[in-house]
Amino acid sequence: MSTTRTHPVARRADEVTTRPRMSPHVTRRSSRTRDRVTAAAFLTPLLAYLILFYAFPLFRNLDLSVRGYTVRNFVQGGAPFIGFDNYVKVFTSQTFVPALTHTAVFTFVSIAFQFTIGLALAVFFHSSFRLSATLRALFLVPWLLPLIVSASTWSWMLNSDSGVVNSLLHAVGVSPVNWLTDPNMALVSVLVANIWIGIPFNLVILYSGLQNIPNELYEAAALDGAGAWQTFWRVTFPLLRPVSAIVTLLGLVYTLKVFDIIWIMTRGGPAGSSTTLATWTYQLGFGSLLPNFGPAAAVGNILIALALLAGLAYIRLQRRQEA
C-alpha cells in the first residue's frame, strides 16, 4: 500500500497532458482487448463466488424440492426424483392458505404503517430544529440492533403477566392482553415489532427524498397562501412519488423474507396463527425433529418466486427513473 500521504499519482496526473501522445489508433484496439482481459481477471473472484455460493445453493434448493427426501437418504444420497409431488403436498396442505394469508397481511400492514409513520417523521425532521440531527440519528437505533435483540426485548415487553405493555394498559384501565399466546393477537404482536424495526429505513430514505425537493417550490406555495396540510398534499407528496415507490417496493422485498422476528417471538404459533411462508419453510426444514427437506424447499421456492416478482418490479422502476 502507498505510504506517501500526498497522493503522488494525483500530482503526476497533470503531467499526462504535456507528454507526447502515442499514436492513438495503434494502441486503442489492443489496449481495449487487454482491458477486457484485465476486467475479467478482476471479476473472477466475484464470478466464482456467485457460482459457488449463490447459484449452487439455489440449485441445491431446487433439487431438494423435486426429490423425496428422508433423513436417511438426505445424508447418504440417492433420494428418488418425484417431480412436483412436494409442491402438490405444499399446495394441498392445510397450512398453505393460512401461511399465504398471514404473509400477505404481515407484508401489507407492515409496509403501510412503516411508510406512513416514516413519512410523517421525515416531514417533521425536514424543518430542522435544535437537536434534530442528533434525534434523527437516534431513530436509526432500532434498525441497527441485531434482530434477536429486538425480538427478545419485545417478547418480554409483551409478556402476558410481567410485560410492561400490559402494565401500562392496566394503568389506563384496559384488561391484560395475551399478546403472544392468544392466536388472535400473535400476528398483531409480531407486526408491532416489525413496524418498529422498519420505521428508520423509511425515515432515512424519505428524508433524503425530501431534501431533493427544491426549496423554491415551498416558497411559492407559501406565497400562494397554501397551508401546511395543502403544501404536503400538493407539493411534497406528488414530488416524493418516485422515492415513495422505491421505498415501498424495497419494503415489499424485505418484508416478504422476514423470518427472525416471527420465529423468535412466536415460532409461527400459537397453532400456526403467525406462520408465514418464511417461518413455514424453516419449520419444515429445521424446526422439528424429523426434517421435511423436500416440502421445505418447495415452500422456499414459492417464496423466492414472490420475492423475485417484487424485485423485478423494483428493478424496472429504478431503470425507468434512471432513463
Binding site: 477486457r36 422485498v253 418464511a278
Partner: peptide, 28 residues
C-alpha cells in the same frame, strides 16, 4: 467488462433472495 448489465442485474436480484432459502441449500 463484457456483460456488465447482466452482472448488475444478477447482483440486484441476488439481494432479493430470502436468506432462509440460501440456508436450506447451504445446509444440504
Amino acid at each position: 467488462p463484457r456483460g456488465e448489465g447482466v452482472l448488475s442485474f444478477v447482483l440486484l436480484s441476488s439481494q432479493m433472495i430470502p436468506a432462509i432459502i440460501m440456508a436450506m441449500g447451504f445446509y444440504a
